[in-house]
Design a protein around this nucleic acid. Sequence first.
RNA 1: GCCUCAGUAGCUCAGUGGAUAGAGCACUGGCUUCCGGAGCCAGGUGUCGGGGGUUCGAAUCCCUCCUGGGGCACCA
Length: 572
Amino acid sequence: MPTLTQRLLERLTPAFDALEPGADPVLRGSDRADYQVNGVMPLAKRLGRNPREVAEDIVAGIDVGGLVAAVEIAGPGFLNITLTDEALLEQLDAMASDEVLGIPAATTEEVCVVDYSAPNVAKEMHVGHLRSTVIGDSLCRTLEVLGHTVVRRNHVGDWGTPFGMLIEHLIDQGEEEAVAGLSVGDLNGFYSEARTKFDADESFQDRSRARVVSLQGGDAETLRLWRILVAESVRYFDAVYTDLGVLLTPQDVVGESSYNPMLEAVVDDLDAAGLVEDSGGAACVFPPGFTNREGDPLPLIIRKSDEGFGYAATDLAAVRNRVDILGATRILYVVGAPQAQHFEMVFAVARMAGWLPEGIEAVHVAFGNVLGPDRKMFKTRAGGTVKLQDLLAEGIDRAADALAGRNHDPETLDLVARQVAMGAIKFADLSTDRARDYVFDWDRMLAFEGATGPYLQYAHARIRSIFRKLDVDHVPTSGALRLDHPAERALARHLVALPDAIESMMESYSPSKLCTYLYDLAQHFTGFYESCSVLNAPDEATRASRLELCELTASTLRLGLDLLGIEAPERM
RNA sequence: GCCUCAGUAGCUCAGUGGAUAGAGCACUGGCUUCCGGAGCCAGGUGUCGGGGGUUCGAAUCCCUCCUGGGGCACCA
């Protein structure tokens, strides 16, 4: 199903092509009309003609039939376009009968691998994992709605030297007791005990180092113990994901260690391609354009001088796996901004090696930090890292306080408090441009006014309450829609722009664009709600029409929030 | 030093080379025969970090400087 913007563009293109083949109309939304066309002036410039005359030619060349009610030439050569109400109504009807509300399927169906969240085994998740998890999840949900095949990859840190001491500590503690402690989620306690012992006890250090060697050597008993740590950690991650309401499952966990068997081949194949240089005993690739502090070429270290592999090798192996085995045509890495150079280098080397062929997109979806009220990295009062579970629990408590006195039974209160808390936390995170840092502020994100999750949820709940009053779940689409009042029309115009908002979001992998759209939608709805009584509409036909607008708005809010990973409660 | 990201209203932030740069919060005033007042309406704010340049047109593109964050060889 084409979007209104696409349909309009089809009408404009021939008129522009007639004057210059391929000329871009530069069609945009507008606050002066339904759309504005900005492409006339640059075209006139290229043609060496008067822009207003060119505008007149364009206007004469547009087939307005059924779609366009008015084209007005304004200012130096803008075209302000007003759609016919019929076109809007037609689009709304089509939306209403479409499961995904008129969001068009992608023109080519891709296999998208999304690498996100990535906590570390034997460590608890903290606020630093929030953005990757929440942004990645939203991108996955949206790619799926667009018809792509999405492969989630939780690239957990499950390998490295700390596992020597962790396994030794596991042995010291006794498996049963250790598992009992880990299963309640006290991963940090376990880790810090091991660390303390390691720092204080030389013989423990020796055992730990020996254990690392056994682990890397594939010793069966060591691997068994290591798997216990991994399994308990994954179980804990899963509990956090369930609380947070993200789609990641244990099946999506493909840790760093999974790529171990492929690392030798990475070096060998790079070497065979003539890309590897030895530098101080390390096997390196020097992709062009990267320099270090001294201005010398900067290497991507594939194998360290101690024969060990660094994470560059793992990431390269992962690229190969994702392209060759999973058939990825697009790979997204939802990883913090500090890794930008690393990914540039990995992608560059993968391209040099032919592992990322032309046409396969690899994108580092970078994001900024979560800051505390002091605008520094968000920490607890004591200066420690903020555990994600603690953060979520506090959000639920605060949401429950805010909802107190609203006549919910205890079970409903608990459910709604969770939905509101997660909505608040996620919306606050997603609504800020991902490249920027943002300040974590409970009072602001949990407010029911302003651009917040709860405000959007509230808008949805308020619509649903209208249907409750009627004692119906939904109204059938009956072609009863009419746009008599300006507020009805404004709402309708915004409703049909959902696909444009999704497109804009995915162009830059910025869920904040969808957040803005949904907030604007809620604003348009309240404008409608204030001036157009639904249940007490002047007549049956108006009431039926307004109910359909309510239905569509609720559906759009629900779908949009779902793409952000936010639930839309029936009542709050 | 080099690279990179950011700098927009008192605060938090939007802003796809287009028209008078917009929201929210906060502040002030108003609105309640009304479907959820957790709402709505009205009030006013800006050297878009500074300075050049490109352009018919720049918050947006280019150069330069300032400020802040991050990165810059064997941790991931």
